[in-house]
């Protein structure tokens, strides 16, 4: 990771210096070292803040809507974006939906060995954490704290989305900096969905009621989602009849999660951003993955963002499609 990181930063500087790109969309350290946040670097000088480390979980694809469309034109350089393998699915999906101007983008595919979740590190008993370093060998990280050092196994502290990594292959790029062999997907991402399906309807309702009651409607899940890219969202549209902030209609408050998940059904790339950003720890991926699993079961395997230009399952059909009555039975078991 260290090596890749150094190369990535050096290459970004180079591309900016030689004028290939005029902007860099990358990450910079936030208030704390584990708070790396998306940032648009517009000068060579500012690139001193560019970082690429174990806490760069944020998917930068969505930022390319604004940044690719706003730039370009005579003499203006391209915009460099750093994309991890899983982020490239979102980028492709946005290309499919004509939301990114590909001409104006230079994609630097960056290798990734898994991103960490600071909460999972804390859960392992570390207090006063001051840094997370790569151990010299093996699959370990060194956690430095105010009270000394400790080691953790990387697999125990990855982000939820990395537990079921899609694989290390970039689906789209102009240039690649990666040391990773693609070992294919990791884990069984539908395990959680199956566990829920095995419960009784009452248990499922109780499960979701307990989870969704925690929601504070901060809208972070919607805002971070690269598939949620409408110019005007139903939840902000006073005329839609469901925008409760404006209409004090409780329908939106109650049904928000189902509406959100349905809106991205067939377009969600399972990038995991929604679950990552939720401050309440709600497992939103269990909604998205239910749709993905059902789509695979009913209409054949489909991975949104695998290639640009695919036709999504909800905007196509066949005459022999499964009837909803049968589908529910099939999906539920």
């Amino acid at each position: 990771m260290q090596k890749v990181s150094e190369k990535v930063i050096a290459r970004a500087r180079e591309l900016m210096h030689d004028g290939t790109v005029s902007k860099v969309v990358g990450w910079k350290a936030g208030e704390f070292f584990y708070d790396c946040e998306p940032n648009v670097f517009e000068t060579e000088e500012s690139l001193k803040d560019l970082v690429y480390n174990r806490f760069c979980g944020a998917n930068l694809s969505k930022y390319m809507i604004k940044n690719s469309i706003a730039s370009g034109g005579e003499g203006a350089g391209k915009v460099l974006v750093l994309l991890k393998p899983c982020d490239t699915y979102s980028f492709n999906q946005l290309l499919t939906e004509h939301r990114i101007d590909r001409e104006n983008v230079y994609i630097l595919g960056v290798g990734c060995e898994g991103m960490c979740d600071i909460d999972r590190i804390r859960e392992r008993g570390f207090k006063g954490i001051t840094g997370v370093l790569e151990a010299d060998s093996g699959n370990e990280l060194v956690i430095t704290t105010l009270y000394g050092e400790g080691k953790v196994n990387i697999d125990d502290v990855l982000l939820n989305k990395c537990d079921s990594c899609k694989g290390k292959a970039h689906k789209i790029y102009d240039e690649l900096i990666s040391d990773n062999e693609d070992e294919g997907p990791r884990g069984d991402r539908f395990e959680g969905v199956r566990e829920l399906e095995a419960m009784s309807p009452e248990q499922r309702f109780a499960f979701w009621q307990a989870e969704l009651s925690k929601c504070i409607r901060c809208n972070a899940c919607r805002n971070a989602c690269p598939a949620c890219s409408c110019r005007k969202c139903v939840f902000d549209n006073n005329a839609s009849g469901i925008a409760s902030k404006a209409n004090t209609d409780s329908f939106e408050e109650k049904m928000f999660h189902i509406i959100r998940a349905f809106h991205v059904a067939g377009r969600c790339t399972d990038c995991g951003e929604c679950t990552r950003v939720c401050p309440q720890g709600i497992p939103l991926h269990l909604f998205n993955r239910k749709y993905i699993k059902d789509i695979n079961d009913f209409y054949g395997e489909y991975a949104a963002g695998e290639e640009a230009g695919q036709r999504g399952p909800l905007i196509s059909f066949t005459e022999q499609d499964i009837e909803p009555g049968h589908a529910v039975v099939k999906g539920g078991n």
Binding site: R204, F205, K290, D294, I295, F317, A327, V328, G331
Partner: peptide
């Protein structure tokens, strides 16, 4: 045909949150 796909997914989701399959 579009209805059929949408409802297949929506009804399955409703079942998933606890609205049993027979109700849709």
């Amino acid at each position: 045909y579009y209805t059929r796909r949408r409802m297949a997914l929506l009804f399955s989701m409703l079942d998933y949150i606890g609205v049993e399959r027979g109700r849709t």
